[in-house]
């Protein structure tokens, strides 16, 4: 059995977990605070190794408990029970930690759909586990299907107009070279750094949220 001194935390794994101790020890979590805010808004790499260690420990705890339960049933040894209870508590605890870890990461990943859009930046994707990437794709699909179904014609884009719109067109300023951009009416404009444009709000809101354009308000 290995001691798990990992930091299951959304921002997780502050430092690599120290090598497992040879001595048997029960599940232990040493959570670390990510510096600055309570919750980091960018995910750390998935703590695969930590989770695997937890699973290994849980398996060991479970097997030991199975043996003890059999012994206790055979000889009706009441003195076995405190140990069984302790291991069981450790099992439950580890289960809770891992589930909470997975759950909270998924929450963050769902939020990313709204903030980054349907395509994640490569380096963020790199920090996700394979299953998490699959989950993100499914989430995006679900959201898209739902948004299509809201109105009979054309659907409703929920990621638009997060703030109440005041006008159809807005003035924007380009913060970086983004190349050509085709507007709905077929025209093509060149989004060059520091150039200013007057665009349909619905078309450029995403680009503003991505930090390509800046909304100028007077």
């Amino acid at each position: 059995m290995s001691l798990i001194r990992h930091s299951l935390y959304v921002g997780v794994v502050e430092k690599p977990p120290p090598p497992p101790l040879t001595e048997e020890q029960y599940g232990e979590m040493e959570p670390k605070y990510p510096e600055g805010g309570h919750y980091l808004s960018v995910l750390r790499p998935h703590g695969d190794d930590c989770v695997r260690q937890v699973f290994e420990e849980m398996r060991a705890l479970f097997e030991q408990n199975q043996q003890d339960v059999e012994k206790a049933l055979d000889g009706a040894q009441a003195e076995m029970f405190p140990g069984i209870r302790m291991r069981h508590a450790a099992l439950e605890r580890n289960k809770r930690c891992v589930l909470a870890y997975v759950y909270n990461r998924l929450q963050k990943i769902a939020q990313m759909r709204w903030e980054f859009g349907s395509v994640l930046p490569a380096d963020i994707k790199y920090n996700l586990a394979e299953q998490e990437v699959q989950w993100f794709i499914k989430y995006t699909k679900c959201l898209a299907t739902y948004m299509r179904s809201v109105r009979a014609e054309g659907g409703l884009d929920l990621t638009q107009d997060l703030k109440p719109p005041k006008s159809l067109y807005i003035e924007v300023r380009c913060l970086m070279d983004h190349g050509e951009f085709e507007t709905q009416d077929g025209g093509v404009i060149l989004l060059k750094k520091n150039s200013q444009h007057f665009l349909l709000r619905s078309e450029c809101e995403h680009l503003i949220r991505q930090g390509v354009l800046e909304h100028s308000v007077h």
Partner: peptide, 20 residues
Amino acid sequence: TREGEKIKISEMVINHRKRK
């Protein structure tokens, strides 16, 4: 200050950039 109506860059994008 009527800043509310301005569309802002999303928080995660900002943090992502800072990190980069």
